[in-house]
Structure formats: structure tokens, C-alpha cells
Amino acid sequence: MFNIAQNAQYAMLSIIILLVISTLIYIYKKRANKQKDFTELKLRIQSWWWMIAIVFFSLSISFKTAVIFFAFLSFLALKEFLSIISIRHVDRRAVFWAYLSIPLQYYWVSIGWYGMFIIFIPVYLFLLIPIRLVLIGQTDGFIRSSSLIHWAVMLTVFSISHIAYLLVLPVQNELAGAIGPVLFLLFMTQFNDVSQYVFGKMFGKHKIIPKVSPNKTWEGFLGGLVTITIISGFLAPFLTPLNTFYGFIAGFIIGISGFFGDVVISSVKRDIKIKDTGTFIPGHGGILDRLDSLLYTAPLFFHFLYYVRY
């Protein structure tokens, strides 16, 4: 318990300091402009405190609590996904199997069985879900249901479980420890969202995909990408087994894939004509609104790291 490597401690401390600063900015802004309504910002920051507290807590206590935490996160995300897309009523039993995949997938993670972890959902569940649907027997909408359920599990369970698998990889950077790469991935992904947003706000002119996300601009995307690539180059040797050169590449991967994760979930929301995927996180929306970029960055960062170092 509380056996955290030195650099991971520094990283956590820095994130808390960043959060304290943004809280102070919020208080200052609120004092300076009393007429304006800051409720949304307040909820956002409050939720950030909660999220950071829960993540740090579960990562710090033990390996087990961290794996359980990510499994639970997968459950919430999968449930949210299957609830917003209107699934056929008869699919409920197949959905039950989809839920059952969560404890199994995270069990493979916890015992470090890489082979099973990497094929369980893409192969076994991929084959199993249509089988269960065949046994239910309703063929109207069969194609849609089998693809939907599998895609949902791939995004919310398979992708997210890669974060947990980072904890199982043998520690190569003693100072970063097992949780260093996890903190690196989470921080970089979230920071990428923030910097793309900030650059877009400041310099945004040319829309990048107006049909999906009218607020996203080339300036925001490129500004964020350059920032993340540079920061990542400096932070990676500190928190991961990667050197500066590979750190730049990792940042580049996170910048691009984070953007696509974001717009993939945006497209899902556009398709079913909703603004947020839920109300679970006050000020942010649903779980998927927060996890969107991570669904893409987690597996891609993981496999880059795995290829380069393991």
C-alpha cells in the first residue's frame, strides 16, 4: 500500500498543483465578474477534483484496486454506450454476455496473460455474440445488433483494459514504477484535449471536419499536436521506459489518436442526436464524453510502448 515510485509521486503532485491553480483562477474570475454565471465551470472543476481523487486513490492503494477501478470504468462506459444506442429489446441476453466479458477480460489482465488479453474480445467475444443472438432467434436487425454490441465492447472494454495492462508490464524505469506510464497516458490524453481546445479558441479559423464537430479547427488540432509532442518528449523519460526520441513519437501518436477518439464519439452522438452521452459527471456530461479520446489513445500508446520496449 502507498508504495509509489518517486517520479509517479512527483507527477501526481504536479497534477494536483495544476488543479489548485485552475481552482484559484476560477475563484479569481468569479470575484472579478460577479454578473456572469460560472456554475458550469464550477461543476467542471469540482468533477475534476473527484476524478483525480478517485484515479489517484485506486492507483495508489494497490494493483488490485487499480484493476478493479478500470474494470468498473469499463462497465460504466459500456452501460452508457448500450443505453444511448437503442438496442432491440430481445438483445438483452446477449448484452448480459457482453457485461460478463468485463470480469474475464480484467482477470486476464490481473494474471498477466497477454495472449488471452489480446484475443479474448477481438476473437472469442466477436464469435460468441452472434451465436447468442442466433439462439435468441430474431433475425430482423440481427446484423445491426451483432455489430453494435461487439463495437461497444471493443471500445469500452478492450480499449480501456489496455490502461490496466500497462500496470502488468515489467517495470523498466524504476523511478517511474508501474503506474508511471498510466499517469503519462492519462495526463497526456487529457492535456491534449485541453491544448487542442485552447489553440482552437485562440487561433481557430479553418474548420477541420465541420459536419461532425463544427468547433474543431486545423489550428486547434495542429497547435495541440505540436504541444503534446514536445511535452511528451520531455516527460516520457521521466514517467515511462521510453527515451526522449520515442517520447516525441508517443506524443505524436497520442495527439492524433486523441483527436480521432474525440470525433468518433462526437459522430456517435450526432448520429443519435444527443448532446451528451449522459449526466454521470456534472459539468462534463457522461462517462463517454470524458473517455472519448482515451478510447483511442490507450490501445495505440500501449502497442507503441509494447513494440518499442517489450
Binding site: 452501460k79 448500450l82 443505453s83 438483452r92 441476453r93 448484452v95 448480459f96 457485461y99 449522459g278
Partner: peptide, 9 residues
């Protein structure tokens, strides 16, 4: 008529 509980929001 069903006993299996499958959570949906």
C-alpha cells in the same frame, strides 16, 4: 416475466 437483470441507464 424475466428473472435476469441486465443493467441499462
Amino acid at each position: 416475466g424475466e428473472a435476469l437483470f441486465v443493467p441499462f441507464v
